[in-house]
Measured scan of single mutants.
Amino acid sequence: LGPKYVGLWDFKSRTDEELSFRAGDVFHVARKEEQWWWATLLDEAGGAVAQGYVPHNYLAERE
């Protein structure tokens, strides 16, 4: 699936296409579209919880 990303700060969605998340949440990014990335929010087991657009500057690649 490629690298995983972690949320740096809490983010509250403003549209139906955006995905709310908390700092520390883990994502798989499917598409990078300039300022907004289409991402899947993952649970602790790595299963998909939700999908939506997230601001790229709120995520960091997980080491």
Rank of each mutant, 00 (worst) to 15 (best):
L41M: 09
K32D: 04
V6I: 12
S13T: 02
A30D: 13
V6F: 09
G52H: 01
L42D: 00
Q35C: 15
G24W: 04
D43L: 06
A23P: 03
E63C: 14
G46M: 05
V26L: 14
F21D: 00
K12D: 13
F27Q: 00
D43Q: 04
F27P: 00
R22Y: 09
W36L: 10
L59F: 04
S13P: 05
W37M: 03
W37G: 00
S13A: 15
Q35T: 12
A45R: 13
V49N: 04
T15H: 11
Y53P: 01
L59G: 01
A30F: 12
H56T: 07
L8Q: 05
Y5L: 02
W36R: 15
D25M: 06
G47Y: 14
W37I: 04
N57D: 12
S13K: 11
V49H: 05
H28P: 01
F11P: 02
G7M: 05
Y53H: 03
G46F: 07
G24S: 03
V26Q: 09
Y5V: 01
P3Y: 09
E63L: 12
R22C: 11
G24H: 03
D10E: 07
V49G: 04
F21I: 05
K4A: 10
G47V: 14
A39P: 00
E44N: 10
G2S: 13
E61C: 09
K32H: 05
E18H: 12
T40D: 02
G46E: 06
V49C: 06
D25R: 02
E44H: 10
D25G: 05
W9M: 10
P55C: 08
H28T: 14
R62V: 15
K12M: 13
R14C: 12
V54I: 05
V49E: 03
L42E: 03
L59I: 05
K32C: 08
Y53F: 09
S13G: 15
K4W: 13
V29F: 03
R14E: 12
L42W: 03
E34H: 11
Q51P: 01
A45I: 09
A45Q: 14
P3F: 10
K4H: 14
N57R: 08
V29C: 05
P55R: 07
G47K: 15
L59N: 02
R14P: 05
R62Y: 15
F11K: 01
L42T: 03
V54H: 03
G7W: 06
V54W: 04
A23Q: 09
G2H: 13
G47D: 14
K12I: 14
L59P: 01
A50C: 06
L19S: 00
D43V: 05
A23K: 13
L42Y: 06
E33F: 12
F27H: 00
H28W: 13
Q51H: 12
R31A: 07
E18A: 09
H56S: 15
Y58V: 03
A50F: 05
T15M: 08
G2R: 13
D43K: 02
F11V: 02
L1R: 10
N57S: 09
A30K: 10
G52A: 03
L8A: 03
V6L: 06
W38E: 00
Y58I: 03
E18W: 14
W38K: 00
Y5H: 04
A48E: 13
D25E: 03
G46K: 03
F21M: 02
G47W: 10
W9G: 04
L8M: 09
D10A: 06
E44W: 07
L41I: 06
E17M: 14
T40C: 12
E34M: 10
D25N: 07
G52K: 04
K32V: 05
A60Q: 13
Q51C: 10
L59T: 03
D43I: 05
G7F: 07
R14F: 08
Y5W: 09
E63D: 14
Y53E: 00
E61A: 11
H28M: 12
A50I: 06
F27M: 09
L59K: 01
G2K: 13
A30G: 12
H56E: 09
E63M: 12
P3I: 14
L42K: 00
W38A: 00
E44F: 09
G2C: 15
V54T: 00
D25Q: 07
K4S: 10
A23S: 07
K32R: 09
L1W: 13
Y53W: 15
V6G: 02
W9E: 05
A39M: 03
K12V: 15
S20R: 02
H28K: 07
W37Q: 00
E44P: 10
G24Y: 03
P55H: 07
